[in-house]
Design a protein around this nucleic acid. Structure first.
Lengths: 123, 123
DNA sequence: ATATTTGTACTATATATATATGACAATATT
DNA sequence: AATATTGTCATATATATATAGTACAAATAT
């Protein structure tokens, strides 16, 4: 299970920080298919925020097929994975990398900064 | 001069993204003391946002003594040096990398896919 | 002097975000 | 069967964010 943390100073909405952490948790292998997430109420208490804010994050991830919810039992990591053709994959990879680097550059980071950071988080 | 970029998908308010990029630009040496920034109107047109949003970013940075404004002539980088802590830089780098990787992973790309793609675009 | 450019200020409007509160439906527990 | 837990939904309220439009004051350019 993830150790959720919210940072009010960033200006990034709480529900979006929760979404990011779940998506990243899955990507990093910390959350696996079928695993149950904290209930909306328990996570709300834990993060000291409103239950509706947690519910909003879960709801959005359910629409994206990242989570599956069953009323009465809980919210779980979905089994579904997205599949694309090789060409689509290449285009998509290029697209998101370009977007990423242009943002990173506007913050003054170099390509090597980025690569180093990604290398680190591999371990 | 910085190449400003806004990303609406992150949920981070525009005025805050502008603030970040100016502060980081100064820290990275891309913006130097005394240098003039784009006018609120030109940057607003450039980023396709409202002039008030740019003004809000500039105003906040003026309060922080990062910028100095002279009505009629423009907005300039203050002589006062702001140095970002390594921690602040690290946090930002981490933030944008996490956002990037979580999106990339949700499309099924591996960390190596990303690193390879970035390596390629270095050349 | 006049006109232009610049930042600033204000009002109004719309949408997004977060909270508080209460209720309900589906599932699980006892 | 009764109770508790879970996600969901709805209403109301407050604040933050962004836009549109207008006007003004200070500096600059003509």
């Amino acid at each position: 299970m993830i150790d959720f943390k919210l940072d009010p100073k960033t200006g990034t909405p709480f529900y979006r920080q929760i979404i990011d952490q779940i998506r990243f948790g899955i990507a990093a292998g910390k959350l696996k298919a079928g695993e149950q997430l904290p209930t909306v109420r328990s996570l709300a208490v834990d993060l000291q925020i409103n239950l509706n804010t947690v519910a909003k994050a879960y709801r959005e991830l359910e629409i994206q097929r990242v989570l599956e919810t069953q009323q009465g039992s809980g919210t779980f990591i979905s089994e579904v994975k997205i599949s694309l053709s090789d060409k689509e994959k290449g285009n998509k990879l290029n697209e998101i990398c370009n977007e990423f680097t242009s943002i990173a550059f506007s913050y003054g980071f170099s390509m090597d900064d980025l690569i180093d950071q990604l290398q680190k988080s591999k371990k």
